[in-house]
Simulated scan of single mutants.
Amino acid sequence: MVETDLKDRIWRHADRVEVGEIPFGTEIPGFTLVRCREETRIEPTLYKPLACVVLQGAKESFLGEAPVRFSAGQTLIVSLDIPTVSRIVGASPDAPYIAMALELDLSMMRSLAAELSDTGPGSEHLLQEQSVAIAAGDTDPNLLDAMERLFNLIGRPSDQRVLLPLILREIHFRLLSAGHGAMLRRLMLRDSHVSRIARAVSKIRSDIAAPIRIAELSQLAGMSPSSFHEHFKSVTAKTPLQFQKDIRLQEARSRLIGGAGSVTEIAFTVGYESPTQFSREYARKFGVSPRADRQGAS
């Protein structure tokens, strides 16, 4: 199913833009390519809602303690902003890990949800499906074809103006229709537990410096505090406090590496009252102190 020609063209494109072993963006917003010629250690990662189509090699992400492995011929779907850890587990100089990733437009998903009602599972079935924010499954040939056409738009601005909206819409439809796209379908149901938890996640993400108020979050989700805790952890594999801590630390690392202020300033910006506590938790999370991390990136 996976076309060797597409893998070769991504390899040549990576050479042309002179990238290393990290994901690299394209002029198509939210469309990222990966070519990594070596396995990697476990690294903290902050996923946005996305789909990652693997053409060669394998990668592993974790939802809590549970590994989610996805390899050639499979697609990873992430439905929510979610802090996790991941690593490339199948790559070599001769057979690198090659993948295409696209950030998802949830507004577009919602506009397509009604059209899916005639082709996907009914609401009653969806409300009983397992709630997980990350899932992997076999890549639909139609999805692979659409992703290849998206790749073909790179460097063709005239084609992008006409074809890009159509291809993006098709890709989102294919993902909603996918066997392992249940979480996306549940997210489109306003009263599902997933959509309610998504509102709480959005609230935490929008103001990471604010203290967690379970009463406010559970009210936003339309749940009792105990029910909110249960469903939040079933979706994210973390408690709200753990989730916020990971989000804060990931955001702090991004700002540190980008040079956006001193360590102390960034600690306060993401919600820490004690720079000492921030440095201690940062080192525990990333294996290096904030200052050393910044120096290593410069």
Rank of each mutant, 00 (worst) to 15 (best):
P165T: 06
Q128H: 10
Q160N: 07
V132P: 00
F151C: 11
E216I: 05
N142Q: 14
H125Q: 08
M100W: 06
S107W: 01
H180W: 02
L104V: 02
Q128A: 14
R190W: 06
I171L: 10
D138C: 01
Y97P: 00
L150Q: 13
A215K: 12
A178V: 05
P225D: 03
H193V: 09
L143Q: 05
S195W: 04
I197D: 02
I167S: 04
I98M: 08
S111H: 05
L106N: 06
R213N: 14
M188H: 04
A182N: 03
L168C: 08
E129Y: 06
I208T: 09
R186F: 00
R149S: 15
R169T: 13
I208K: 03
S227C: 04
V194K: 01
M108I: 07
S107L: 10
H180S: 01
P211Q: 03
A221D: 03
G222F: 04
M188I: 00
I214Y: 01
A210F: 00
G137F: 04
I98D: 03
L163V: 02
R205E: 14
I214W: 07
N142A: 15
E129V: 10
P121G: 07
L164V: 01
A182F: 01
L127K: 02
S227R: 06
L143W: 05
R190L: 07
L184W: 01
M183P: 09
A133D: 06
S158N: 14
E170T: 15
G120S: 15
E124W: 11
A198L: 02
D105L: 08
S117D: 13
K203Y: 10
F151Q: 09
G155E: 13
R161W: 00
A133W: 05
S158C: 09
E129W: 04
H125I: 09
R110Y: 07
E170H: 12
Q130P: 13
P157L: 00
H172Q: 15
R196Y: 03
G222K: 06
G179R: 09
A113T: 02
I212M: 13
S107T: 10
L150R: 11
S131R: 01
S107C: 09
E115V: 05
